[in-house]
Amino acid sequence: MHIVVCIKQVPNTTNVQIDATTGTLKREGVEAIINPFDEYAIEEAIRLKERFGGKTTVITMGPPQAEQALRDTLARGIDNAILVSDRAFAGADTWATSYALAQAIRTLGDYDLIICGKQATDGDTAQVGPGVAEMLNIPHVAYVKKIEEASNGSMKVERMMEDGYDLIETPLPALITVVKEINTPRLPSLRGLMNAKKAQIPHWNAETIKAEKLNIGLTGSPTQVLKIFSPPLRPGGEMLQGSLEQVAEQLVAKLKNAQLI
């Protein structure tokens, strides 16, 4: 089984502070990390390989610095990593990103399963995974919380929905996007870290993946950012004072006055 994982580097928001006066993120010294949802995708790929054999490949589209994220995945047990990097990809929206990743996966050749995180924590769109599947003309299942069964030709997965979950069977090759519930990612091993350090990571550019110029980067992106602004600050709140009974009474009265309860 050849499993391909698509990952993205995002700013680490874990320790990010909010600037109290402007209400915006303090960006000083924010490091780039692997998108948290992609960690589950990586782990699931390694687990499937452990069960069924085969190989795992991780792909990312990004700047040369994204190589570090790829090395992290090698340290955890991913077999190969490829960096898709070209200035011509800059400014890509979800359509142009899906296109570039699909072209890169085509260049890889045979694959059985593609795994993506359900969304990235910077853009929050959840659009690239299904987009890649469509461009490769394979089925996809989004929001997968468990792989119930897998064989060489097909897979049964649980798709998380608002009111429960759906059980879906898909033939392979297919693409799934995964949610946090699917597994607990492992930490890199010492040997993995050593190997990852030495690994050669190929860099593919637009030419390598035979990308059409009109389909990549800003030119290939149907959507364009018109403007970016800070959301209005939430007006400061009120600290309710008094005994517990008085506080509870005030709160319920306020909610009732606002006709919310």
């Binding site: 928001t13 853009g123 959507t223 364009q224 403007k227 970016i228 959301p231």
Partner: peptide, 11 residues
């Protein structure tokens, strides 16, 4: 975007 820390208008 960025978890609600910025707003973007898209066309």
């Amino acid at each position: 975007a960025f978890g609600g820390n910025i707003m973007a208008t898209i066309l």
